[in-house]
Design a binder for these strands. Structure first.
Lengths: 248, 248
DNA sequence: CGCTGTATTGACCTCCTTCAAATGCGGTGG
DNA sequence: CCACCGCATTTGAAGGAGGTCAATACAGCG
């Protein structure tokens, strides 16, 4: 799983072996972090970027009344805060959800990579843009779809994102989230997550037992929530993969 | 208003006169565009970036059932799609809302600027990051706040963003949006926008007559929706401005 | 085997949607 | 100047999706 990261970046640029070595080096900066730990807190001025190697993490914001909204999920292979040097203070927090392995990358290292590896720079840019695209889709998802489709859409997105880094097979993946965490991702209540999950199960759209999510019929789930993976911009390579599995 | 754009970028980097001249040159690429016109459509591969000089525009996505979600509002001074060359196809559309003046900037020009003007590059990066921060806040806003606070929060955000480019005074601004457009920004119904607006009016939190929005007591509106301008990252200069007006 | 956190269920309530009709208003042509 | 059209705003009534509160069941773990 170590190189989930590189596997993902390959979608954004044609890397050379030298690039791969340089990227692989980053994994030396790995550290284990327990579940539910803040990595960076709002208002701080971090001087390292972060790369998730194992586990699920997230960006989130909390408001007065204590309610919390996750604004993105960080999966293995996701790198964040490449821009460390540009914005003044964090406007949100980053925390682990499950136990994680995370590489802490000094901003100097990022800058060095950017100077000497144009393809990596491009891949970093690409990765940032994909993150943005995902946020846009979440805005649409959370704004326009009813809870059941909304949840289905999230599951579809995670399937693709995890497949890209080899952490999902054709029909399912480990999903180490509590219902509360799903709730604060989808902008609905914990209680309602529970009921929604049951309705998806009842419709045979998903199974979800013991942290493992299984999708009996991916096509059907996609159709159910109007999911189109285009916004993930993993097309080229992913498309090939996808078509293969689609030929049934 | 021409240089709203530069005024805004100054928040992201210390520009030199040469930088300003180069940026000002971009305004030569301006073109008038009528209201409700698509500038770039989903699935296209544009080769120009866009800079809004006058009027309101937006990024949006539409889904099957015809419902629409605006995923960002583009105000004068906002530049978008700097990355033109990196992502394959647009995963969303961009359209004018009110009549606009928009500069169409060839990607070659962008690249040229980035090569010869490091401060502009930095300012561009910064601008992209602010756009992301705004999306995060929208996710929180749309996910966790009831309609009235949600709308109030949008109004507060627009006040700050328009002040930065000189298009709002201390207590109000021109808001050339229909209620339908507000609805698809906030992820609520047109009908409900109307009633929500009435309730905000009834509470004397805003006035909204003939396209002009007035906020009788900015502090109170901020408090009402728990608005904190931090995420807009306009601090340094803006803070000074703000404190001045705050001294009553 | 009890403790703690997560999942589940029930009853009730309300915010927001839906559908449908009415009102207002700026522009245009007679 | 008025009649008329299209578009935006407003209002009403009714229903439903999702929220709130609170209790119970369950599972992993020390």
């Amino acid at each position: 799983m170590r190189n989930a990261f590189i596997a993902k970046l390959e979608h954004g640029a044609e890397l050379t072996d030298a690039d791969r070595v340089a990227l692989d080096d980053l994994t030396r900066l790995a550290r284990k972090v327990g579940p539910r730990q803040d990595i960076v807190r709002q208002d701080e001025r971090p001087d390292t970027a972060h790369l998730v190697l194992e586990g699920f993490a997230c960006r989130y914001k909390t408001l007065e009344n204590g309610s919390r909204q996750n604004v993105s999920l960080l999966l293995p292979g996701d790198i964040c805060d490449l821009h460390v040097a540009i914005l003044d203070v964090m406007d949100h927090s980053i925390a682990t959800l499950s136990p994680c392995t995370i590489a802490f990358i000094p901003s100097a290292t990022i800058l060095h990579l950017m100077e000497h590896h144009p393809r990596i720079t491009r891949a970093f840019w690409w990765s940032t843009l994909v993150d943005e695209a995902i946020m846009r889709e979440w805005l649409v998802n959370n704004g326009q779809r009813p809870a059941d489709q909304r949840m289905a859409h999230l599951f579809c997105e995670l399937l693709v994102r995890l497949q890209v880094v080899g952490l999902a097979d054709a029909s399912g993946y480990e999903l180490p989230l509590t219902q509360y965490e799903i709730a604060s991702t989808l902008g609905i209540t914990l209680v309602h997550v529970n009921r929604t999950l049951q309705s998806l199960r009842a419709a045979d759209l998903v199974e979800y037992k013991g942290r493992r999510l299984t999708i009996p019929d991916v096509e059907r789930l996609n159709a159910y929530c109007d999911f189109d993976a285009g916004y993930l911009h993993m097309t080229e390579r992913y498309d090939a993969m996808w078509r293969k599995s689609k030929v049934v």
